[in-house]
Design a protein around this nucleic acid. Structure first.
Length: 314
RNA sequence: GGACAGGUGGGUGAGUGGUUAAAGCCAACAGACUGUAAAUCUGUCCCUCCUUGCGAGGUACGAAGGUUCGAAUCCUUCCCUGUCCA
């Protein structure tokens, strides 16, 4: 085993539930340590989806470069694997310039794909998927039975009703059939030392802040943003329209539900989403947790101290 | 004051004499996650106890009585709520 020829570059990661103040904290850290922000949010990747994704407006970004924001058109389907590849390139580029990359976002799966890597498996196959979905619709349960034959291990790990995951698992087996021992190992990110920072604001306070933020998004023109997207050629079936706020705004624009109902359901689902994020990040033992919001002076100072220690270590 | 309708677990809402601690939905809580991930999916959800079991006990369908082997379901009175008539 050869030792790493060059010392590993530092990488700071800021995670936490939506609305916990990740962007603010990351920006402060970036300002103090010559950092550059790299997006790790599956929706802020999309162009035109600004209000509902709580994207930091360019005016507030100051001189700090932001990467991987607004890089996708709504009709582009994306994936964790693609994200990992794209982001690794961006990270390297930033480090080459001796700047500190700061990864920010709440999409745990993308972060995992980036840091730990994904096994080298085939990408999605639309036609195959359609076929599989059709079969399952006709005979509920077939996919799970099929997977049990093709790959008993994954079958045991995936619930029979989780169609989305079943389709992928079956797809992988079908696509790699005959392709002998697929390397089962993932390819983790190399060449980096990672500092993971997690924001953990008080639950009730976060819920209140989230309710308020949702209300504000609608007041600040979420509906108009959706109308504009529709006017510029979107059909409303694109992936980012499946997300919180956009999903509801779309039905309001179409006159299917009232604004009030939309706000309330968005608030509920946002709260539930925040919970799922906590569940995801909670089990990562490498995260340094901070109780509070990312815009709290106290949290910013504590994080800055941690980061300072982290980067001078190299 | 009179006539109807109705009061069910955190919310909604089924249930009209017996496998009903009470469907479903929502909220809440916990969890899973190997290319759709702001997605998708799972579990718990009256209380107590234990030998954690299709376990034991207790409480529960506005209140109090009654009928019955047995009541959320039937009867009586009372209290509330809604609509309509005065």
């Amino acid at each position: 085993m050869e030792p790493e020829p060059t010392p590993a570059s530092p990488l700071v990661v800021v995670v936490g539930p939506t609305g916990s103040g990740k962007s603010t904290l990351a920006l402060r850290v970036a300002e103090s340590f010559s950092g550059e922000i790299v997006n790790c949010d599956s929706l802020q990747l999309y162009r035109g989806f600004d209000i509902g994704t709580a994207k930091t407006p360019p005016a507030q970004r100051g001189a700090t470069p932001h990467h991987l924001f607004d890089v996708l058109d709504p009709q582009i389907g994306y994936s964790a694997g693609q994200y990992a590849r794209d982001t690794r390139a961006v990270l390297r580029e930033i480090s080459t310039r001796n700047r500190l990359p700061i990864l920010v976002g709440g999409t745990g799966f993308y972060l995992k794909a980036l840091l730990d890597g994904l096994p080298p498996l085939p990408e999605r196959d639309a036609t195959l998927r359609e076929d599989l979905a059709r079969r399952e619709a006709i005979r509920p349960g077939v996919l799970h039975r099929l997977l049990r034959r093709l790959d008993p291990r994954s079958a045991a790990a995936i619930h029979p009703r989780d169609i989305q995951k079943l389709i992928r698992a079956v797809e992988v087996r079908v696509l790699t059939r005959g392709a002998r021992p697929m390397p089962k190992v993932s390819e983790p990110l190399t060449g980096y030392r990672v500092l993971k920072i997690g924001l953990n604001p008080d639950r009730a306070e976060l819920a209140a802040a989230l309710d308020h933020r949702t209300q504000e998004m609608f007041e600040r023109g979420l509906l108009d943003e959706v109308r504009g997207l529709l006017a510029s050629g979107c059909s409303g079936t694109e992936k980012p329209f499946e997300s919180l706020g956009y999903k509801q705004a779309l039905t309001v624009v179409r006159g299917e539900i009232s604004l009030e109902t939309a706000i309330v359901t968005t608030q509920n689902e946002t709260r539930q989403y925040a919970k799922r994020q906590r569940t995801w990040f909670r089990r990562d033992p490498e995260i340094h947790w901070f109780d509070g919001f990312g815009h709290s002076i106290r949290v910013i100072e504590q994080c800055a101290a941690l980061v300072r220690e982290f980067i001078t270590l190299s």
